[in-house]
Design a protein around this nucleic acid. Structure first.
Lengths: 224, 224
DNA sequence: GGAGAAAGTCAAAATTTGGTCAAGAATAAA
DNA sequence: TTTATTCTTGACCAAATTTTGACTTTCTCC
C-alpha cells in the first residue's frame, strides 16, 4: 500500500514540483494550499505531512499544534527560515523534522523514508491476509473464520503463511519445505503431504471450502 | 526517570562538552569513544543515541546498521560532512536525524526533545491497563489487581513489562531473553520457563485468570 | 483399460517442547 | 557476617507436535 503524504504550502510551483517528485517515488500525494484546506484534508489520514512554515492566515507552527490534536504522524517542516530559534520553535510545536529551503530532493526523500520507516517500526499495523471470509493475522499468528479462531500448529501456520502470502502461485514440495523449514529436504518426504492434509481438514471443517489446491505433478497453490 | 543518552564520538573535547550540557538538561549520559565501546554500552538501553559519523575503525554508518539490529531508539548523526549524499546515506543506514557540526546546543537539545517526545508518543504509554482490573504501572513498576498490589521481582516485572507492552504478539524465549536481559542467551535455558511459571502463579492466585498464553513451538504472548 | 507415478490417508513411533520441582548459586538486605 | 530473597540450573514428566512407513486412492499417459 502506498504511503500518503500531505503537502501543505501556498506556493503552487513548489507543491507541483514536490508532488510530481514524490509520486515518482511511489507515494500518494495530496496538496493543501492553505491551513484550512490542510485541516480539511486530515481525514484522508496521511502517513506523513510536509508543512511550510510561512503561510498566509494561520502560521505553520500554529497549524502544527492543531494538527497534533487530531492525528499522530510525522510532520516535517519546510522553510526558508534558518535561525536556530526557529528550528527550536518548530520542533517544540510538535514537529518531527525541519528541512530548510532550498533542499535537495534526494535528501527530502531520504528523510521521508527515515520517518516513515521509523513510524512503521513503532506502530506497525497487523499484517493480515484475507481470502473469502478467512482472516490470517501474520503478526499475531492467528487465523479466524468469521468470529471463530482456528488453531494451527507452528509448522501448519508457517505453511499457511507462506502459501497465502503468495496466492495463486504454485510451489512444489521441495520449495515449500525449503521456505518453511529453512533448509532442503533430504530424499522423498511425506511431511508436506501430511501437513497439508491437516491444514485442509481444519479449514474445511470450519469454512466448508478448499483453500489449498493441488496442481498435479507441480505442487500446491493457495486459491484466492 | 531521566532519559539516557549515549554519545558515540572519538573526540574527548566534544564528548565532554556535550556530556556536561546534556546533564545540565537533566539527561543521564554515557560516552563511548569507539564503535566497540558503543556496542558494549548498548545494554544500558539508551533512549537516544548521538553518533559521530567519522570514527576510527568501524564507520559510523556501519555502526548505525549494527545498532539497529539490537535496539530501537532514535539515532542522531553528528558530523562535519555536509553533502546531500552523505545525508541520504546516513538516513538510509537507519538514522533518524542528521546534525551538522558546528551546531547550536539549543538546536541539539530541541531536536533531542522532539525525538524523545516522538518516541514517547509512539511506544511508551505510562501505564498499561489490561482487561479485567489488572493495572500495570510501568513508571512506578507496580502491579495492581483491583486495590491489591501484587509483588514481582525485577526479572518478573521486566518480563511482564515487555510482554504486556506488546500484547497479542508472540515472542520466543530467545527474544524475551534478549529484551529483558539485554544480551543473547547462550545455549538452551530454562530461565524463561521458570519465570513465566512464577508470574503465572502470582497472577492466577490474585485474579484467577491467565494473562500469558503459550503458543506452542513459538513462544509466549500477553493476552489482551 | 492398465502400469506407474504422484498424491492422500491413517496410525503409530520419534522427537520436541513446555511445565514442574527441588536445590544450588548469586545477589541483596539486615 | 548472617539471613533472606531472587535467579539460575538440571532433571524429570507430560503433552503436543512432527515425522515416518505402510497402505490406498487418484491421475496421466501409453
Amino acid at each position: 500500500m502506498a504511503y500518503k503524504i500531505l503537502i501543505v504550502d501556498d506556493e503552487p510551483i513548489l507543491t507541483e514540483l514536490l508532488s510530481t517528485h514524490l509520486q515518482d517515488h511511489g507515494y500518494t500525494v495530496s496538496v493543501a494550499n492553505s491551513s484550512d484546506e490542510a485541516l480539511a484534508k486530515l481525514n484522508t489520514k496521511p502517513n506523513l505531512i510536509l508543512l511550510d512554515i510561512n503561510m498566509p492566515g494561520m502560521d505553520g507552527l500554529e497549524l502544527c499544534k492543531v494538527i497534533r490534536n487530531h492525528i499522530v504522524c510525522p510532520i516535517l517542516f519546510l522553510t526558508a527560515r534558518i535561525t536556530e530559534q526557529d528550528k527550536v520553535n518548530g520542533l517544540r510545536a510538535g514537529g518531527d523534522d525541519y528541512i530548510t529551503k532550498p533542499f535537495g530532493l534526494q535528501e527530502l526523500i531520504a528523510r521521508i523514508e527515515a520517518h516513515l520507516r521509523r513510524d512503521e517500526r513503532n506502530n506497525r499495523p497487523p499484517e493480515v491476509v484475507t481470502s473469502q471470509g478467512l482472516i490470517i493475522n501474520l503478526s499475531d499468528r492467528k487465523v479466524f473464520w468469521n468470529e471463530q479462531e482456528l488453531s494451527f500448529s507452528k509448522r501448519e501456520f508457517d505453511i499457511i503463511e507462506f502459501l497465502s502470502s503468495n496466492p495463486n502461485q504454485v510451489f512444489d514440495k521441495e520449495r515449500i519445505y525449503e521456505a518453511v523449514w529453512g533448509y532442503d529436504a533430504e530424499g522423498d518426504s511425506n511431511v508436506i503431504k501430511e501437513h497439508i492434509r491437516k491444514i485442509r481438514a481444519k479449514l474445511m471443517q470450519a469454512s466448508g471450502s478448499e483453500y489449498i489446491e493441488t496442481v498435479w505433478g507441480m505442487g500446491y497453490r493457495w486459491k484466492k
